[in-house]
Design a protein around this nucleic acid. Sequence first.
DNA 1: CGTTTGACTACGC
DNA 2: CGCGTAGCCAAAC
Length: 136
Amino acid sequence: MFNPPNAQSFFETVWDIVRQIPAGKVSSYGQIASMIPPDVDTEPTRMKRLAPRWVGTALRKTPRGKSIPWQRVINSGGAISFPAGSPQAEEQRRLLEMEGVCFDQRGKVDFARFAWDGPDQDYLRRKNLLPPRLLK
DNA sequence: CGTTTGACTACGC
DNA sequence: CGCGTAGCCAAAC
């Protein structure tokens, strides 16, 4: 997906994309990853399962105080990826509910209602990004 | 400097 | 459906 020298720019790309997600909507690690062009050296098939994990890595290093809505990224199953009951999971859920995002009884978000469509075309072109894969 | 640890996902039971 | 797991490799210890 990216070589060590590119890690920082990859992280910043992730943070910038996450900043585009409006309140009340959610994205997934995989959806963010699907917008970032792969390295020319890397096999597309191989990066497929790799990329979302790096999005998680990038998000773990999210700088505080830069108003990045990290809480709006959840996993492909519609659930929060922090361990259930952990302080971080509860914080994320609280922030999302405050924005109007609902969780069902199993703790999942309905993508049909709350999935983010991705940034506008202009942003994609400006940043040289790919159209995101749509969330189910 | 070797080992462990992930804010993931697709896929097979 | 839900659950377990392989793949992956830079960070964090």
